[in-house]
Computed example of a mutant assay.
Amino acid sequence: MAGPTTARRGEKKSRPGPPSAGAPTGRRLRWARVRFRAPGRRGLIIITVLAVLLGGFGAWALYASDWFRVARVEATGTDVLTPREVVAAADAPMDTPLISVNTDAMARRVTSRLPRVKSVDVERSWPDTIGLKVTERTPELVMREDGKFVEVDIEGVRFATVATAPQGVPLLELAVSDFPGPRRFGNDRLRRAGAEAARDLSAAVHRDVRTVRVRSYDSITLELTGGRRVAWGSSEQGAEKAKVLTALLKAARDARHFDVSVPSAPAASRS
């Protein structure tokens, strides 16, 4: 009796273990077959028909429906101009598909009809709005002409005529008849040189400038309050000249004539 009992006690019970990582189960094999099964011919036909229908619906919605048509035009970024002036100059095609609007043509109309506008970004705002983001030109100098004042920006562009000169904007005088500057550079370039000279000045000195006189590209003179005059030379090295002039005005308070045309060798005198 002891033999069989001992034999049964010595027997090891065998239980099925978990499948090894490299051996996929039947469920995994079935899932793999479903996952990588290519659509049949019928499935491809259905997918193609759905894509065509969706594409046709999208084209109809954008071009033929009443959902995405121009209903509003809005202008931002104006200072002197009004948003209404900008919108009128843009002349947007109202009640037309928003997607078909020629935004470049609208931008050209605004800048050509409103010289004060330096640039304008025209953007579509879905579903029915066009946005006009304007950057206006600002006067760096003004020119006296026929009893009025013509505003000139930093690029030398004449962009607006006003009855009264803006406060704090110096007067620009071009006196170039006896010099070769206009033939070499043109008045546009000379206006720009004068504007660049005014721009480079410190705020404190800029407030004292009354006139920027340009006789040639290399001969720019600044007339300040108190009868003071500054020989600026050309518009090159403007930032360095501005620093030197600020220091010179503080060091020689009794002087009336200053020369910073060569910033490394400035000069000041009373006469």
Rank of each mutant, 00 (worst) to 15 (best):
A90K: 04
P19I: 14
P180T: 14
T225M: 04
L132D: 02
R84Y: 03
T164R: 14
P93K: 13
G168Y: 06
R270T: 15
V49A: 13
S269I: 06
A193F: 06
G77K: 04
L29P: 00
A71H: 08
V73G: 05
P127R: 10
E136H: 07
D95T: 13
G156L: 07
G168M: 12
E123C: 01
V205M: 05
S202R: 11
I45G: 09
R35D: 04
P127L: 09
M143W: 04
V230R: 01
R28L: 10
V152E: 03
F57H: 07
V176K: 03
R158C: 09
S202T: 15
M106W: 05
E74R: 12
F68M: 12
R256E: 02
D200A: 15
P24A: 13
V101D: 07
L54R: 03
V110D: 04
P166C: 14
S219A: 14
R113M: 05
R116Q: 12
A252D: 04
V152A: 03
R27G: 10
A242W: 05
D95C: 06
Q167L: 12
A71Y: 00
A165C: 10
P24S: 12
R8F: 03
A255Q: 00
L174S: 08
S125T: 10
P4Q: 09
A59M: 10
G227A: 06
T129C: 06
R27W: 07
R35W: 05
E240N: 08
E123V: 11
T6H: 02
G186L: 08
V34T: 13
S119K: 07
F258W: 02
A32T: 10
A163L: 13
S264G: 15
F179A: 15
L249K: 02
T25H: 03
S65M: 11
R30F: 05
L141Y: 00
S261I: 07
V157A: 09
G55W: 00
R207I: 04
V205I: 11
V80R: 15
G77R: 01
D178S: 15
T96W: 02
R109K: 11
V86F: 01
R8K: 11
W126F: 13
R229Q: 08
E151V: 08
R229A: 08
S219T: 10
T246S: 14
E223Q: 10
A247G: 13
A197F: 01
E173T: 15
A203K: 13
G147V: 08
F185P: 04
G3Q: 07
T76V: 10
T82E: 11
L224S: 05
P16F: 06
R28M: 11
S119A: 15
P127A: 12
D259L: 02
